[in-house]
Each structure stands twice: as structure tokens, then as C-alpha cells.
């Protein structure tokens, strides 16, 4: 799949256009910034300089300072670590768990499928944000419970998608051929079904990562995400909202970072969708 993606992004096959390339580059910069934040941030994220609180952007503090005199640029860079890692980890957990449950339900069918899917579908009765808030309220605030809450909030969609893929694929003749050689369920699922089902799930996972960043920021804004002094974009916006008119840069920069990363992820995901030809591939073989 990786080779295919590189192929397609290099303008062989259907052209995704320039936007996904730019978006991909922006994403790379964002991830690099998150990784390198301890080295590239001009100030420690928690260094308070009360004498310099609420300063507008200047040469010393490019993005200005917040109410404790902390450097906003440094906090946005460190916040990228929190926001991106929470989003990535939660989507990875959600996606792999959803794929496992969906694959087993789709393959086994019958009462197991019926009851497990009924339970999973119940999470769809709530809006994601409500479900996540509920879970964090039960688990207590913090990064781990945020990850869990986001993972469970998006579990149903990955489970449903994988299940429907597997249900369609298991009727293909090549599965019967494998059974004819004496293949067991593990071979059928892991070698024949899942590799054929993975592409659309990966694309949805990418697009959902954008939503997960938003959800993480929302939880952070409500004070339910990463706890101070760990910087997170949502938390920064929350404290910035109190200074909206005196120091608008405090809320502006983390907000811009959230918007930029969500837009970049969505554009890149759309490009991958086109490049992998997810919709057409099943019919053309």
C-alpha cells in the first residue's frame, strides 16, 4: 500500500492534485515541530516571567506571552506534542480495536455479531463529545483518560466499516479457494480478508484523526484534557478566552494551530482517498 501511495502521489495513476502534497508537507512540519519542541522552542514551556505577562508578540516572544508571562510560541510547540500524540494514539487504539472486533464479527456472523454490534452501536446514540465528556467524568481528567475517551467515541465507526468490508469480502471466491486447500479461520482472516479491507479503514482513520484533534482540544478547553502545567492547545485556548480582548494572541495561536492541523489532515486524507482509489478498486480488481 505504501508503494502504491508513493506511486500515486508521484503522479502515476489518478492525480490527487497539489493540495494534498502541500497539506502533507505541512503535516510533516507539524509532526517535526512536535518532536523537536524541546530543542527548537525558544523558552521552556513552563518558565513564568510575571514581569512580562500579557505581552504582545515581539522579537523576544514571537507569539507573545500569556498571563503568567510564559512564551506562547514555546507552549504552542509543546502543545503540539500533547494534541498530536493524544489524537494519534487514540485513533490508533480505536482503529486497531475496531478492526479486530469488526473483522471477527463480520467473519463469524450469527448471534455473536448481532449482540456485539448492538453493544457497539449504543455508543452511536451519543454525540462523540458527550460520550467523551461522560467517559472522562468517570475516569477522571488527564491524558490517559482523554485517549481512552476519544478511542471509544470513534470505535463504532471503525468497527462498522471493517465489518461491512469483511462481510462483502468473505463471499469472494478466493476465500472458498483457500478453504478448499484446508485453510483455517486465522489464515482466511489475516491473509485473505484483512489485507483487502485495510485501505478504506486507513483513509477513514486519517480523516478521523482531524476530528480527534478537535475533540482533544474541546476536552482540553473544558479542563478535562491534559492537566496543567502540561500545555495543550485546548487548555491554552481556555485560559486565553479570559483575556480575549486584553491579549487576543493567547487564544489566537493555539486556535490557529488546531485549525491548520485539522485542515492539513483532511486535505491530505482526501488526497490519499483519491490516490488509493478506494472506491473504484473493488470493482476493477
Amino acid at each position: 500500500m505504501i508503494a502504491r501511495l508513493v506511486d500515486r502521489l508521484m503522479w502515476r495513476g489518478p492525480r490527487p492534485g497539489i493540495a494534498p502534497i502541500v497539506a502533507g508537507a505541512a503535516l510533516l512540519c507539524l509532526v517535526a515541530a512536535a518532536f523537536l519542541s524541546p530543542w527548537i522552542a525558544p523558552w521552556p514551556y513552563d518558565q513564568q516571567m510575571l514581569a512580562e505577562a500579557d505581552r504582545a508578540p515581539s522579537l523576544a516572544h514571537w507569539f507573545g506571552t500569556d498571563e503568567f508571562g510564559r512564551d506562547v510560541l514555546s507552549r504552542v510547540l509543546f502543545g503540539a506534542r500533547t494534541s498530536l500524540s493524544v489524537a494519534l494514539v487514540s485513533i490508533s487504539v480505536s482503529c486497531s480495536l475496531g478492526m479486530a472486533i469488526g473483522a471477527i464479527c463480520g467473519y463469524v456472523g450469527g448471534p455473536v455479531d448481532r449482540w456485539v454490534m448492538a453493544a457497539i452501536d449504543m455508543t452511536w446514540c451519543f454525540p462523540e463529545i458527550l460520550l467523551a465528556l461522560l467517559l472522562v467524568a468517570i475516569l477522571g481528567p488527564g491524558s490517559t483518560s482523554t485517549v481512552l475517551a476519544i478511542a471509544i467515541a470513534y470505535l463504532a465507526q471503525f468497527t462498522r466499516l471493517t465489518r461491512s468490508q469483511i462481510r462483502a469480502l468473505k463471499r469472494e471466491t478466493f476465500v472458498e479457494a483457500s478453504l478448499c486447500f484446508g485453510a483455517g479461520p486465522a489464515h482466511i482472516l489475516l491473509r485473505r480478508l484483512l489485507p483487502n479491507a485495510v485501505a478504506p479503514v486507513v483513509v477513514v482513520a486519517m480523516l478521523t484523526t482531524g476530528d480527534a484533534i478537535l475533540l482533544e482540544a474541546t476536552l482540553g478547553f473544558f479542563g478535562m484534557g491534559a492537566q496543567p502545567p502540561t500545555p495543550s492547545w485546548g487548555g491554552m485556548m481556555s485560559s486565553g478566552s479570559e483575556l480575549l480582548f486584553e491579549a487576543p494572541w493567547v487564544i489566537l495561536w493555539p486556535g490557529a494551530a488546531i485549525a491548520a492541523s485539522v485542515i492539513a489532515i483532511n486535505l491530505f486524507g482526501d488526497g490519499v482517498l483519491v490516490a488509493l482509489d478506494v472506491k473504484k478498486r473493488r470493482r476493477t480488481h
Binding site: 469472494e172 471466491t173 478466493f174 472458498e176 479457494a177 485473505r192 489485507p195 483487502n196 480488481h285
Partner: peptide, 8 residues
């Protein structure tokens, strides 16, 4: 024959 071999 089109679906009897895994396309991958």
C-alpha cells in the same frame, strides 16, 4: 476466474 484469485 476474476474473483477466484486474491487481487493482492
Amino acid at each position: 476466474p476474476y474473483s477466484s484469485i486474491d487481487p493482492r
